[in-house]
Amino acid sequence: SKSSSQSAQTSQVKHAAYKAEDYVGSEACKDCHEDQFKFFSPTSHAKLTKLGSWKDKATGCESCHGPGKAHIEEGDPKKMISFKNKSSKEISETCLTCHSGREEHNNFRRGEHWRNDIGCTDCHSSHSPPRGRQLAASNVFISSANAQKPGFSDLRLMKNSEPQLCLSCHGETKHQFQLPFHHKVLEGAMKCSDCHNPHGGFELKQTRLATGADAACIKCHVDKQGPFVYEHAPVKTEGCIACHTPHGSSNPRMLITSRVAQLCLTCHSVAHGVGAEEPAGPQHNQNAQYANCTNCHIKIHGSRTSPVFFR
């Protein structure tokens, strides 16, 4: 039949090909799909029927699953669009029918999750509430370990709250958030999506941009924004991660090495007259207090007044 051959990704787009009388409304689905209806009805998807701008548009269950008349009359599951055997990309195309075109989702088709076949329904559930585990809340994992309390997953139809949802796949980052110096993600003060856009983006690591085209870090670390008369060029050209590990580190300042001098000298060792200038002479002895470069070059992210970042 036409509906069964309909690919999921075009289900919404092709609705115009169906006759209006083929649609029966979500209430008709309730009799057999009670659980799904129960969870779906309080969602923002279900409420679209009440919004003026969605008048005469396919809404409710049939907006994704296609018109239900034939399915109800014949009882044939093939008369509905089912996502059971669809790939993550195909499922996502259905969602993108409505959700693309927003700045947040515009790049999903070129994002890292897409590339690795992670789709919308791997993180979101259109007709079930979050299924966070019934944990007693930890002193550290304060905010979201406990499914007994509501969270943003309730509003965004997410399967679990951040950061638990993200860490369930990106477990390799978990240890970094428990090192002595780390961004306060597990404590609840920050979310993964504060810095990353899980729906894709033009930036490396799908980071968000701060004001204009600045790096995400600048949003909070405003004093690094500049512009300065004397820029430390790598801050802008290479980015913060040239020197810092953003998730966490045992090194103070979350630097990528534990000794400042060795970090600086990695660049500031002139090779064949090319590259960053090297420290001159004995006053930069590694066995003096000057070995810690930022003891003197304190304005290392850029200075308004000192070409060598002294003030």
Binding site: G119, D122, H170
Partner: peptide, 21 residues
């Protein structure tokens, strides 16, 4: 970027959800 294992929704997802009171 890290590839991300994705637990696919299962029927049991519904049975495990907390009851919305």
């Amino acid at each position: 970027q890290s590839p991300s294992p994705s637990p696919s929704p299962k029927k049991s997802d519904y049975s495990e959800t907390p009851v919305e009171t």
